[in-house]
Write a protein that binds this DNA or RNA. Structure first.
Lengths: 113, 113
DNA sequence: AAATGGTATGCCTATATAGGCATGCGTCAA
DNA sequence: TTGACGCATGCCTATATAGGCATACCATTT
């Protein structure tokens, strides 16, 4: 099997560097495809494809504006990722030494069971 | 081209659901491969492979303990992900309405340039 | 209606997995 | 030393991209 489909999974969608860059650019406001492609140095089809993935996972919304299509950020989907990683915060805050001690302790406890 | 290699990129490493589950389990302390595989309902080779990826991106450390090899969490690599998503916090905190207004505004400004 | 600008898609290729299995290896116990 | 146990790997397959190109689509402007 290959990796899970990027669509339907925000974690996979943001695994692509260029897609992350697109999201960053969109923080400044809506933009048409061509402009995004230009700023990121990618072809228009490339940009459209990445935007499609982002749209399918809900990180981006599109709106027709005359002849162009403006893409806008909808970052709500990033919240779960932020919260998931946040669940590990105490682990990177503790010094590695204390972390080791902590782990050792748990290991002991578990082994004794 | 295929997606970038999972190794050398934390974002890709945690794009895999099972790898995320492994990390969660490791919050409780070090564990041998077999135990992880058992709790997650995957085969031992599968677990070893996922652990290898996690080790290569630095999210996990391994330590030989007699006949077994204990894997432990090293969440420091998750911090960048947490911070990156954190950069979008104000966007999911604002009501969608205000977000729209904000974006509209920026768009106007940009168009006028 | 015809021409043009702005996008979305289809098609083809190379590549990187994720799984399933069998098996090689190193370590500890008898 | 011989087994048994715990893991790591190698090999093979099916699948999902990411890129590059050409092109079909749609709305707007002459």
């Amino acid at each position: 099997m290959a990796r899970a489909a990027t669509t339907s999974d925000v974690f996979n969608a943001i695994a692509e560097p260029q897609r992350r860059e697109i999201l960053v650019l969109l923080r400044a406001g809506e933009r048409p495809v061509t402009e995004l492609a230009g700023e990121l140095g990618m072809t228009q089809p490339q940009a459209s494809k990445h935007l499609r993935v982002l749209r399918e996972v809900g990180l981006v919304r599109d709106r027709k504006a005359g002849r162009q299509r403006l893409y806008g950020l909808d970052a709500r989907g990033l919240r779960p990722v932020h919260e998931w990683t946040g669940g590990f915060e105490r682990f990177w805050n503790e010094s590695l030494g204390r972390l080791d001690a902590y782990v050792q302790d748990l290991k002991q406890t578990r082994r004794e069971t």
